[in-house]
Lab assay of single mutants.
Amino acid sequence: MSIQHFRVALIPFFAAFCLPVFAHPETLVKVKDAEDQLGARVGYIELDLNSGKILESFRPEERFPMMSTFKVLLCGAVLSRVDAGQEQLGRRIHYSQNDLVKYSPVTEKHLTDGMTVRELCSAAITMSDNTAANLLLTTIGGPKELTAFLHNMGDHVTRLDRWEPELNEAIPNDERDTTMPAAMATTLRKLLTGELLTLASRQQLIDWMEADKVAGPLLRSALPAGWFIADKSGASERGSRGIIAALGPDGKPSRIVVIYTTGSQATMDERNRQIAEIGASLIKHW
């Protein structure tokens, strides 16, 4: 058993032996400061991975655009179909130039040979490839079927209504393609630790998130040596930015963190910096 498999397999085991986890309101002070700095709403939640207890939250039940963070949920739905014998990670999917949409750094290189379902999930999560996400959405029946999958998990909040890139429109008060921090954190925890997916599929999902290559300026920039993080970021119109993550010290995840912001006029660099500073406060007061 690899170190990674050891880590995921023991998450339920550690729940019975973990020390009490204490919240630190200092992080919420930073979240509120980020709102002031960005001139935008910020949603935040910090969840204990083992118990599911909410440690801190700010606007946990307000809607925010999901942006590309939905791609983790999408690959969770794909893995659920794999577990049920309805899909194979090794199945190759062929597509054409007409299928390519904006920001497809991986799929645009494989027009001649296509990509496997496994490769598409990797591209969608680690590189946020939009065509990969659309191709995967097609395999499960489209955005409405992803919403149905989430409903069956008990998440009646999170919804996907459109495809890439239209889902990134982020119109104020538009509930399409949105979630709430509390709903996203709970759903992510179920995917990573619950019985919905097999152990192998849970491991695969967290491996893809751990290999994320496009979230460096966010929480990863504040991470001390030896800490673990598996994450997925997102960005969209109207100053929207977000990240969902499982992270913790000693090389294993122990908390879920979800951060969303929307409605800012700030630059992408400034949005990144504010999220990184929230992460730094979280780690300092861990």
Rank of each mutant, 00 (worst) to 15 (best):
L219T: 01
E87T: 05
Q203T: 12
P25A: 03
S201L: 05
G154E: 07
P25V: 11
M153V: 10
K252T: 12
A280V: 10
P253T: 04
P60Y: 05
R81W: 03
L135I: 13
I93Y: 04
S281Q: 10
Y44R: 00
I206L: 15
T198C: 10
A170Y: 15
K252H: 12
W227C: 09
N168A: 08
H24I: 05
E277Q: 08
A246H: 01
R7Q: 13
N173M: 13
E145S: 10
T262E: 11
L135F: 04
F228I: 04
R41N: 08
I244H: 00
E56D: 08
I93R: 02
S240C: 13
L223V: 13
A183V: 09
S80R: 12
L55I: 13
L150W: 07
R189V: 06
A84P: 01
L135K: 03
R41W: 05
N152Y: 10
A225E: 15
K252F: 11
P60S: 14
F149Y: 14
P12D: 06
T158R: 00
T186S: 15
R41S: 08
E270G: 07
V106L: 12
T178H: 01
D177A: 01
T178Q: 02
A40I: 06
H151Y: 11
P65G: 05
P12Q: 11
F13L: 12
I229S: 00
I3F: 13
H156Q: 13
F13I: 08
I125R: 00
S2V: 12
L196V: 15
R176D: 04
G90M: 13
P217S: 10
L38M: 07
A215L: 01
P12E: 04
L137Y: 07
I244E: 00
P20R: 14
A15V: 15
L47M: 15
I3N: 13
H94T: 15
A182S: 13
T179M: 00
F70A: 07
R162G: 08
F70V: 07
W208Y: 04
R238S: 15
R91L: 03
A280R: 14
E145H: 13
L218M: 07
I93M: 11
L89K: 02
R238K: 13
Y260D: 00
I11L: 09
K252S: 11
E175T: 11
V101I: 10
V21D: 01
L49V: 10
A124V: 04
L223E: 01
K252M: 11
I278V: 05
D269Y: 09
R176L: 08
Q86S: 14
K252E: 12
F6H: 10
L160P: 01
R41T: 08
S240N: 15
A15G: 13
T186P: 06
T126L: 04
P249H: 02
E270D: 09
E175Q: 12
I229Y: 04
T186I: 14
W286C: 05
A222R: 14
Q97V: 15
T126A: 09
L135E: 03
I171R: 10
S233C: 03
L188C: 06
A40P: 02
R238G: 14
P20S: 11
D207S: 14
S254T: 13
G52V: 02
N168Y: 04
Y103R: 04
Q4R: 13
I206Y: 08
M268G: 06
S221W: 06
R81H: 08
L247H: 00
N152V: 10
A40S: 10
K232T: 00
S57T: 08
D99L: 09
A40R: 01
M153H: 09
A183H: 09
R238W: 12
D83A: 02
S57Y: 08
F70C: 04
L38F: 06
S254D: 12
H24P: 07
N50R: 15
L205F: 01
I243Y: 06
L79S: 01
V78L: 05
Y44E: 00
R7C: 08
L49A: 06
V214N: 09
D212E: 03
Y44K: 00
D207A: 15
N173Q: 13
D250F: 08
Q4K: 15
H285P: 00
I93F: 04
K144V: 12
I45V: 15
D231N: 02
P224I: 01
L135Y: 01
M1I: 08
R176Q: 10
P12T: 14
P165M: 04
L219S: 02
S240H: 15
L146P: 00
P224C: 01
A124G: 04
T193I: 15
D99V: 09
G90L: 11
R238Q: 13
F58L: 06
S264C: 09
H285S: 06
D99H: 11
T131A: 10
R162H: 08
Q4S: 14
